[in-house]
């Protein structure tokens, strides 16, 4: 019972995502400081992506995604317990997308990068390890059954050979 309760607590306190800092998609020196923009996942597909800006000294910063006809712009904001500024944006269509970071009222983008957006991952593709979870379980049960049958067979043979 205690095993079940503790495991249930572990499940409830668990988040699926591992900490994933993302891959740098653009970086440049601003004065003496280096500013870097990171994106998760490394190979984006249609759907949401997470951006992290490291090294920005201060002031409001916005990030914009231009993907086909779709444009989305939002502020990069600090999150408790995590360094840098963060935002989540959507890629609407497959193909090239331009990600730009604007600091304050400056017209020139602070950082700019073109990324290629892949097709939307289907639920089946995204969850395939869990969908196939029954295969290793079945493998274990099958191996157990085979070993038990083999043991029974050899016991019977061994016993039979003793009969004159």
């Amino acid at each position: 019972m205690s095993r079940m309760l503790l495991t249930a607590l572990a499940v409830l306190s668990t988040r699926l995502a591992c900490a994933d800092g993302g891959v740098p998609i653009d970086s440049r020196m601003v004065g003496t400081e280096r500013v870097t923009l990171l994106m998760t996942p490394a190979r984006p597909s249609v759907g949401s992506a997470r951006f992290t800006l490291l090294g920005h000294g201060g002031g409001p910063v916005e990030i914009q995604v231009r993907n086909g006809d779709h444009r989305e712009r939002t502020a990069l904001e600090a999150e408790p317990g995590r360094p840098g500024l963060h935002a989540q944006l959507d890629f609407a269509v497959e193909g090239p997308a331009l990600v730009t970071v604007h600091a304050g009222a400056a017209t020139e983008p602070l950082l700019q990068s073109e990324v290629t957006v892949g097709p939307q991952a289907t639920a089946w593709m995204a969850r395939w390890p869990w969908i196939l979870a029954w295969l290793p379980m079945l493998g274990l049960v099958t191996l157990r059954e085979w070993l038990l049958a083999r043991r029974l067979h050899s016991t019977q043979e061994h016993g039979a050979s003793k009969i004159p």
Binding site: R3, T7, A10, S13, R15, C18, A19
Partner: peptide, 11 residues
């Protein structure tokens, strides 16, 4: 951040 690894490790 306890990830999914929290489940097997706690167990």
């Amino acid at each position: 951040v306890p990830g999914v690894s929290a489940v097997p490790i706690t167990l």
